[in-house]
Design a protein around this nucleic acid. Sequence first.
DNA 1: GTCTATAAAGGGATAGAC
DNA 2: GTCTATCCCTTTATAGAC
Lengths: 230, 230
Amino acid sequence: MSLQPEANINEIGGAPEKGRARRYRPGRIREKNRERIIAAAEEAFAHHGFRGATIQNIAERAGLPKSNVLYYFSNKQRIYSALFDDIMSRWNAVFSEISPDDDPAEALETFIRTKVEMSRQHPMASRLFAQEIIQGAPFLKDHLRTNVREWVRGRAKVIQQWIDDGRMAPVDPVQLIFLIWSSTQHYADFQVQILMVENKAEYEEQDFEHAANFLTDVILRGCGLEPKTR
Amino acid sequence: MSLQPEANINEIGGAPEKGRARRYRPGRIREKNRERIIAAAEEAFAHHGFRGATIQNIAERAGLPKSNVLYYFSNKQRIYSALFDDIMSRWNAVFSEISPDDDPAEALETFIRTKVEMSRQHPMASRLFAQEIIQGAPFLKDHLRTNVREWVRGRAKVIQQWIDDGRMAPVDPVQLIFLIWSSTQHYADFQVQILMVENKAEYEEQDFEHAANFLTDVILRGCGLEPKTR
DNA sequence: GTCTATAAAGGGATAGAC
DNA sequence: GTCTATCCCTTTATAGAC
């Protein structure tokens, strides 16, 4: 994610060191290290929250000395913020492109399945986000109040239009969005509980399909719709 | 919670200090302080997780000096564990007394409404529990693997019986329990997000009723049932 | 039972050698 | 760009005066 295209801007300005034919582009190590730190930080913060996570721990996970981490990100907060740039943009992309002309069942099913898929592919990101919200959203409060709020209002409007057109049962659109968020994210955030209850060491591919099918069935039927797929 | 009945055991052994007619029972201050610490710790741990919370912060919230907190609970872990005694027992009581003879719609509706009510009355407890699970359940793993697992199996069995008797749609009982957990706890755990999106400073009484009505409608209909109340 | 003092360890962040 | 050494602060926990 956020990898730049092959032709790197840095190549233009960078003087090849002492004329030797180096195979590295300038900034390449930088990029790689930043990514390793980002990945390590996602785990650390998801595991312990902002205060509980330590730079030392992030450095260890990234396989770098502590001061190296602080060389790339000048302080703890910068690391934390950097994580949410990726997360929020991914997050925003789901269910954004709906219109009143779409088929409600199809659109909602895609929304649910995409969210379950995100829980599968980015569980750490989901947990990190959950931590931030549970802790009172100190860093994301503004973002929630503006961007997320607008996003929800936009989607709710479309759902309300479907209801007004008699194409689905009259349920509160905003609550419906909350229901889909909570039920799908649960598979990432409460993974340990689910695994313990189901007596498994880890998820299998079919578990997510099963979960997505279940949620699609119940929620769509709950909205007076019939699932299209399968 | 966990308040003992009026006749206090301690009264038997306690010598009334210097013969004066004291109005305190021995151990009464102790009890009161313990409760204040418990309440303060719930907030602190819910806010910052185990590592992120500090004894200093708990002491401040409780209005006691730090060493006083460590006098009552010998270390940080003891405070943390003590919290879950209360939480897990409350938690266990909900939806426990169901039988295959019960009406599915009525039983599920009660389950949903009780859980929403718990989110309203004990949001800190819910957040604390969520934190613990997201962080990998280091303290509750055993409890999940044994008690919670058995609890879910028992309830799922009853739901499955309802399905086999043709009294509700054939949905996965365990997934249904997860759905009800996640969707109801969401109102406590993600409170900040919900408030920001709905542009409110705090919840009002009607919000919870509205949420409970919505969830009852959608989930019961999703299970091929009709809500009884209202 | 309460509180001050303090030991011992760990945390974030910076300076500066390489 | 990398890494060691280090400063300074906070944290947990204990000792011991009151």
